[in-house]
Design a binder for these strands. Structure first.
Lengths: 217, 217
DNA sequence: ACGGACTTACTGACAAGTTAGTAAGTCGTG
DNA sequence: CACGACTTACTAACTTGTCAGTAAGTCCGT
């Protein structure tokens, strides 16, 4: 086990700060890995394929990240960091603003198939046994649900109970993810329109209250 | 290439009908494969693991199915056939009946985690490059969308345009699939309630017509 | 400003494991 | 007794990870 950047090896030596070229290289690798894992999945995407994209050997990749699993973890962290930077300043919105933001995002995603596929593949794979991204995906869902449920309650101005907001929040996330998969498999699915329609419908139903317009049971 | 059951080997011999024990054996293998592919995914689930479950070697499995990909295909066909048998007589319903049926199914699925995981894993994996189940999944979505869109229009009694029904149909399927994934990762998601709530909301919005209660753009 | 001491970023070869698929032979049964 | 259902034995291709070696960079004392 030798670490490229971090902690003291074993002797009491100081790690020395990484130079500029190194952090750029590592980012190149992270982007390549995101690309490979996104199209082939984590388990079937190989280190060799990642390495090839940046013109080194798979051993070179391992030099930087130590293991394939560690590479995945850093890919996920990198993505989180990027997301945060994209929202720099423009703090994550609440209330109706949040739903507008979601719709804009979906509309943008319709032109970034690679990103969408990467997300869908990883999410799907995460429900397999002992998948290393499981915790990350699960956590991401939890946070998202919280934010959306909060926004639903804001829009409902206190008349929407928390439990109902929770139902609506998970449904909204579900419809977004589920539609992405259908769209990836079949272009005839209108991703942005269908998503927007469903979000509005769910939001409206939540705000209108629990009484069901169509008794289904 | 030698086939277990079908075509003539090379000599002009007649294929001979398979004995009872054989077809049962093949079904055992199919169930085992569905199990393995469902929990580990197709690509990472191994023939050896499938074989072990029925007490033979991986070569034995290949004797019956010829290749791993063929095994997957027959698993999918087997599932289709089972689904059809489950609806024996009780032809697939339309109109409001269909939505009641969907809700019952989801409620039942909440007690059949294995089945749900199998479906989710395979669906997610199918969006990866050149996945052998891609066509099957895509086709399944197409058929489902058609059925649901038809039911939406029935409920709308001719007042719902086809394009709107299509949006609603893909959204309903999306929310069902997306919620399953969230539920698999986190039990705190109320799968049946959230699904039912969203279906009703989307259906109501579709029937109420296109004018959006909350202008989001 | 220079030269040794040390680190970093790799490569190429290899280890050790897993994989699907093949070929040949064995055995029981209809 | 022939054939179907296997097993055993094996191959070829990949997999991740380790290791030693090397070229290039950085740091520091003089």
């Amino acid at each position: 086990m030798d670490d490229a950047v971090p902690s003291t090896p074993a002797t009491g030596r100081t790690p020395r700060k990484p130079r500029q070229a190194t952090v750029e290289r590592r980012q190149e690798i992270l982007r390549a890995a995101a690309n490979t894992f996104g199209s082939k999945g984590y388990k079937t995407g190989s280190l060799a394929e990642v390495a090839e994209q940046v013109g080194i050997t798979h051993a070179g990749v391992l030099h930087h990240f130590g293991s394939k699993e560690q590479l995945l973890i850093e890919v996920l962290e990198y993505r989180d960091k990027e997301d945060v930077e994209n929202l720099e300043g423009k703090h994550i919105p609440g209330g109706l603003e949040l739903f507008r933001h979601l719709e804009r995002t979906v509309r943008a995603n319709a032109h970034r198939r690679g990103i969408v596929q990467g997300y869908s593949v990883l999410t799907g794979e995460s429900v397999t046994e002992n998948h290393p991204a499981r915790g990350w995906v699960r956590n991401r869902f939890t946070i998202l649900r919280g934010e959306i449920a909060g926004a639903v309650m804001e829009v409902g101005e206190g008349r929407v109970p928390e439990s109902l907001a929770a139902l609506a929040a998970s449904a909204i996330i579900g419809v977004m993810d589920g539609l992405q998969v259908q769209w990836l498999l079949d272009d005839s699915v209108d991703l942005p329109e269908s998503t927007a329609f469903a979000i509005e419908a769910i939001l409206a139903a939540a705000v209108a209250g629990s009484p069901r317009p169509y008794p289904l049971d």
